[in-house]
Each structure stands twice: as structure tokens, then as C-alpha cells.
């Protein structure tokens, strides 16, 4: 999958990038600001966006999730420490993976979402730490 990483912390972004590259995915970014993320999406559409709520000095990750959902129907997953805030914006994201998480959990989460997004039958269990916003239908 082509995955956009919207995360302004260099270490966290790198960890995610490396884990996902190792698992065979392609990466866009990391984008440290909402503007940068949107600029990258302008050039190429990712299959999935991993979004930290705090991008730069504001909570613009929330706006980013809403934008990519409403404008391009790109599925987004919040990766953040601010769970309550993520839940409050459940309408525009697949779910939330709380920080901190291990590379293994991230990869299993992405695999699980990939299966759901491509409507692959399989019945695999989502990783325990992943919180899905069930109101959204994957593959919409």
C-alpha cells in the first residue's frame, strides 16, 4: 500500500516509516504539517493516511483527516496520544491507534486495514490496541 505519514515528530515518523518500508509498503512523507500533507496528496493519492493529531503547533491533524475524507475519500487512521479528541472526530477516520505503539502493532494494524479496505475475506482479528470507529464502513 502507499501510505502517507502525517507526523511532526522526527523520531516517531522515522520509526513508522522504517517499520512500514520493512513490511513492503511505500511511504509518502513524512509530512510535518497539514499543508505539507495536502501538497503531497496533490501529487499522488495514498491508499491510507496515518495522522498524528498534533501537527505543528495545533491540532490540525483533525482538519487533515476531515479534508482527505471529504475531498478525496482517502481513509485515515489517527495515531495519537489524544484518544478522546480522536474519538470526538470519529466521523472522518477509520479509527485510532494510541501512542505509544510497537512497530509490530503498527504493521499488523496496517495489514488489517488493508484487508478491510480491499474487502478481502479473511476474518482476521484486529490488533488489540487498535480502536476502530465502527460507524464507518471500510471500503466506502
Amino acid at each position: 500500500m502507499l501510505i502517507l505519514i502525517a507526523e511532526d515528530d522526527a523520531l516517531n515518523a522515522f520509526m513508522m516509516e522504517q517499520s512500514l518500508l520493512w513490511a513492503g509498503h511505500s511511504i509518502m512523507g513524512p509530512a510535518g504539517t497539514m499543508a505539507e500533507a495536502l501538497a503531497l496528496i496533490g501529487q499522488r493519492r495514498p491508499d491510507l493516511a496515518l495522522i498524528d493529531i498534533n501537527l505543528g503547533s495545533s491540532t490540525s491533524g483533525l482538519d487533515l483527516a476531515r479534508d482527505i475524507c471529504t475531498r478525496w475519500n482517502i481513509p485515515g487512521l489517527f495515531v495519537t496520544g489524544q484518544i478522546e479528541l480522536a474519538r470526538a472526530h470519529r466521523a472522518h477516520a477509520l479509527g485510532v491507534l494510541p501512542k505509544p505503539f510497537t512497530p509490530q502493532t503498527l504493521c499488523r494494524t496496517v495489514d488489517y486495514l488493508q484487508a478491510r479496505l480491499t474487502s478481502r475475506a479473511g476474518g482476521a482479528e484486529p490488533p488489540r490496541r487498535l480502536e476502530l470507529f465502527e460507524s464507518r464502513d471500510a471500503g466506502n
Binding site: D9, L11, N12, F14, M15, Q18, S19, W22, N54, G81, K99, P100, T102, P103
Partner: peptide, 20 residues
């Protein structure tokens, strides 16, 4: 609170990267 979470997150990231 935000900074503490950030720092702990960084330590985890460094740990995972180094382990790998």
C-alpha cells in the same frame, strides 16, 4: 502533559529502532 508524552514516545521510538 504533552511534552512528557512526547518524550516517552521518543524513548520508545529510539528503543524500537535500535532493537531492529
Amino acid at each position: 502533559n504533552h511534552r512528557v508524552k512526547n518524550i516517552l514516545s521518543n524513548v520508545f521510538a529510539v528503543y524500537h529502532m535500535t532493537v531492529q
